[in-house]
């Protein structure tokens, strides 16, 4: 996968986004290369979620342009469909379907949108459940699993769509501390396969380990963007320094 000609998987050019009067994103630009891992951090309300939700069309941007895998995101149904099938997303609250078993959660997408048979989907789903290390939970309902297990199911559900790009929005923030590492472990393994990833997270150990590029946002802008070594050791802005000091002290 990473051997293909290195282009940009995601090109975000000068986008802005307002909720009513409030500007959540102001003139944001970001390029993500194929196979690149980007970690986004910043204080609450800085627009991190809004930014990555724009990438798969969960939010619409007002100015600028977003191109995903060469497809311009213009909120026509066609481009949205094409982009959705290339971009997976993992949410802070897992958002599993409570009325379906783990296996059904994972196979629903492939069966409905990729024209895969039930058996093929089941085989594929079991494969991904092994990858997130919970194949034995396949026939349980989400409610019967721990938070960490639920988030791993959510990751398997995204993977089963075989996306090129995965977006993570604070995937470990709703978890009890003892479950954070099991989810991060899965994400690290995923990063090693060469998947293009954008992660909003404050897990700085994880960031140091997998990130190719760190992005720091504040008040709707990207304030700092650098490789992790530079980012953690000598950030340019004071705001970023203060922020890092705060979260690393926790």
């Amino acid at each position: 996968m990473p051997e293909s000609p290195v282009g940009n998987d995601i090109e975000i050019k000068n986008i802005s986004k307002a909720f009513g009067e409030f500007a959540a994103l102001k003139d944001v630009s970001l390029n993500v290369k194929r196979g690149e891992r980007v970690v986004v951090c910043g204080p609450s309300g800085s627009g991190k979620s809004t930014l990555i939700r724009c990438i798969n069309g969960l939010e619409s941007h007002e100015e600028g342009s977003i191109t995903v895998d060469g497809i311009l995101l213009n909120h026509k149904t066609k481009s949205l469909e094409q982009i959705r099938s290339r971009v997976g997303m993992v949410f802070q609250q897992f958002n599993l379907f409570p009325h379906l078993t783990v296996l059904e959660n994972i196979t629903l997408g492939p069966i409905r949108s990729k024209k895969v048979t039930q058996e093929q989907a089941n085989v594929r789903a079991m494969g991904y459940l092994e990858r997130v290390k919970i194949p034995e939970q396949a026939y349980k309902y989400p409610r019967q699993l721990s938070g960490g297990q639920q988030q791993r199911v959510a990751i398997a559900r995204s993977l089963c769509m075989e996306p090129k790009i995965l977006l993570f929005d604070e995937p470990t923030s709703a978890l009890d501390p003892e479950m954070i590492s099991e989810v991060l472990e899965v994400m690290i393994e995923l990063a090693e396969t060469g998947m293009t990833m954008i992660c909003v997270t404050h897990e700085m150990g994880f960031a140091r380990r997998v990130a190719d590029k760190m992005v720091f946002m504040d008040q709707g802008r990207i304030v700092e963007m650098a490789p992790p070594t530079k980012f953690f050791d000598s950030p340019d802005t004071d705001r970023c320094k203060t922020f890092l000091k705060q979260i690393l002290h926790h």
């Binding site: 969960l58 959705r84 949410f91 958002n95 995204s158 769509m161």
Partner: peptide
């Protein structure tokens, strides 16, 4: 949002 992200119409 989850349905959207797994490409359901």
């Amino acid at each position: 949002e989850a349905s959207h992200s797994i490409s359901l119409n």
